[in-house]
Every structure is written in structure tokens, then in C-alpha cells.
Design a binder for these strands. Structure first.
Lengths: 192, 192
DNA sequence: CTGGAATGTCAACACGTGTTGGCATACAGT
DNA sequence: ACTGTATGCCAACACGTGTTGACATTCCAG
């Protein structure tokens, strides 16, 4: 039997963590198909069969590695006219410091399960937060969708496609340009 | 030797075209890695080896299938205050009727060559057109990049990730919401 | 009609993949 | 010290892939 109370630390936890980190890096750099278990295992300096033992399958590994929390701030606490800037700044910060989102984005382009997870993150985290920061709740899903289109487009062009003008622009300037867009998507109307 | 004058029609042209169409559909649906030559050949009702004969390799086939012309209108002929609407409407129309862009987008997420082609399309077609429709030429690349981030984000969320609120919104309404964004990216300033 | 080129089919190769089971070693509880 | 278990490595399997070459068939110029 296993232990009693609060889950003893196993010696393999270090290995598990190393695998997970290597997996995130490889998935972010290469996407699901091109990131091989052998390469991930080599990065983590363990045998490929260890990945199977601890995560069951490549899909299981990805599911574990693609856990992602946007860590959105509570939007009801933000002055309504600063929602756009706050949100955009938060996203950019988050992406610059955690490659999980890029891994997810790269993979979601070809992997249905990853796309489904993206839709889940959108619905459970972004749309949910937006719903509490919007004038008319009826319009919340569409507003959240528009915000997602701009934010994911920014992530795509900056981290995946690497369009030079977007890569070369520093985060503060990006925020300055994009914040008004998100602000209008959240609180404005199509024609204003 | 081959023929003299204006390139006689060969009997294999139909096969070539069938392969190309099947390739575009498969690349659009599955992305580069998951779209197999065998599947493409089956769709085109020919033998996989024909693909090799006519296109040399899978990369060569993709290069041929991912030829894409945005067919941007001449922006200098558009009233400056309608640039956003014109551009957004054009993009959405183009995507709804030609899946090549989706194939390219799906593939570019994991395939460096496809990403490079995306950057080429951006630079040679979008950025070039934008440069002629912008007040200060100095700012043109960044403006074009911002436009790309919004337009590609829309394509990504609508055709690849299939976020429900974006999928369910009809093109006209999308244009209404997004046009002002693009208009500001083209002619406005960060804070207005 | 006939020979050679164009077009198409078939079977196979070489390779990399995810995955599996067996075996060695290190650890922890008694 | 001894035993059972956790942890790790190795070799191999089964499979699908892009790609290739040999062979059959169809077309067309002479």
C-alpha cells in the first residue's frame, strides 16, 4: 500500500518534473508531432520508457504539460476604462515568462485535443472573466471571442510566425497599440 | 525534345491539378505532418508515386499547394477612412472561398518553411500594400504587422481553433467589429 | 502499324516513431 | 542483513512514413 497522510515525496518526483519541463520546451519549440518522446527523454536525461511509465502515453504527457492557467486578474476590481490595457499587459507578461501557451498554440493548429483544450481555456477562463466586466451580459461571449482573436493573433505573429515588425516591437509599445482594441471589444460598440 | 510554341497541354495536367487540389484540402484539414502522401493520393485517385514524379517530394508538393495570392485591392484607390472596412471585408471573403490560407496557417505553426512563406506573403503583399496607404512610411511595417496580428488571429480562432463565438458570428458582423481596429492600425495612433 | 515516350501501378526499402517487456540496480522497511 | 518495491536502462516490436525502382499500359508521331 501507499502512504497514509499528506502524500510523501517520492524520489521520482524530480524525474517527473524534469520530463515535464523538457516536454514543455519541446512542444513549444516543435509542436506535438515533431516533438518526439526520444528527444524529450534525451533533454531530461532519462530513458524514453520512463516517459511512458510516468505519463502513460505521449497524449498523456501532453495533457500534463499543457495544463495552463491564464491567471487572469479579477476584472471587477479594475476601473472599466483601463480594462483593455490591464488585460493586454497581463497577457504579454504571461507569454513572455511561460512557454506553455506557445506549446499549446503550436499544437492546437493540428491536434484536435489541443484545440479542444484551447476552447476550454477560452470558455472557462477568458470568457468567464469577461462576462463579469462587460455592460450587457448577452454580448459577453462575442466580446470575449474578439479579445481572443486579437490576443492569440498577437501570440501567433510574435512567437510562432515571428513576423519581424511584431518581434522587434517591445512589449510596452505593443500594449499601447493593442490595448485600445481590446478596450473597445470589451466595452464599446462595433462603430465606436 | 518538347514542343515549340505556347506550352502544349499535356495529358497529365489533369492529374497534376487533382493532386494539387487534394493536397490543399488535406493540408488545410490536417496540417503538413498529418497530411500523408498516401491520403492525398487516395483523394486524387492516383498512386502515391505519381506525387513524387510530378512534385519531387512532399516539400515540393507543399510548396506548390501553398502558393497564395492575397489579391489585395489597390489601397491607394480606396478612400482613406474606408481602408479598414475594405481590407477586413476582403480578407474574410478571401478566406471563406479559398482554403489555401488555412492550410498555410496550420502548417506554419510547426513547419519552418511554411512560416518563412508566411513571412514572405506578409512582406511582399500585405506590408507592400500597406506602405502605400499609410501617412508616415516610417511606421508602415509596424502598422502592417498589427493588421496581420488581428487578421491572422481572426483566421486562427475562426478556422483553426473554431472558438464558438467567432464561428457563429456571420462575416458582416465580424467586419463591423474588426474594421475599426484595422482602420486605427493603418491610420491612427496608439492612443486614438 | 510501330516504336518510343508519357503515364500509371505495384511492391518494396529504409527509417523513425510510440510503445512494451525484461532485466539490472538502488532504496527503504523490518 | 534481507526482501520486496521503486526506479532506471536496454533491446526489440509493430507500424506508418516518404521515397524508389521495376514493370505494365496508354498515347502519339513517323
Amino acid at each position: 500500500m501507499t502512504e497514509a497522510a499528506p502524500t510523501r515525496t517520492r524520489r521520482s518526483d524530480a524525474t517527473r518534473a524534469a520530463i515535464l519541463q523538457a516536454a514543455r520546451e519541446r512542444f513549444a519549440a516543435d509542436g506535438y508531432d515533431r516533438a518526439t518522446i526520444r528527444a524529450i527523454a534525451a533533454d531530461a536525461r532519462i530513458d524514453p520508457s520512463m516517459v511512458m511509465r510516468y505519463y502513460g502515453s505521449k497524449e498523456g504527457l501532453f495533457a500534463a504539460a499543457a495544463e495552463f492557467d491564464l491567471r487572469l486578474p479579477e476584472l471587477t476590481a479594475v476601473p472599466p476604462d483601463q480594462l483593455g490595457e490591464r488585460l493586454v499587459r497581463h497577457f504579454v507578461d504571461r507569454w513572455e515568462n511561460d512557454e506553455t501557451m506557445v506549446a499549446l498554440l503550436r499544437t492546437a493548429a493540428t491536434n484536435p485535443a489541443a484545440a479542444e483544450r484551447m476552447r476550454g481555456i477560452f470558455a472557462d477562463q477568458l470568457a468567464a472573466a469577461v462576462a463579469r466586466a462587460v455592460p450587457d451580459p448577452e454580448t459577453a461571449p462575442r466580446r470575449a471571442g474578439l479579445v481572443a482573436s486579437q490576443m492569440l493573433g498577437l501570440a501567433l505573429t510574435r512567437y510562432v510566425l515571428r513576423l519581424p515588425p511584431i518581434v522587434d516591437t517591445d512589449p510596452a509599445e505593443l500594449v499601447a497599440w493593442v490595448a485600445p482594441t481590446v478596450q473597445r471589444y470589451l466595452r464599446g460598440t462595433p462603430d465606436a
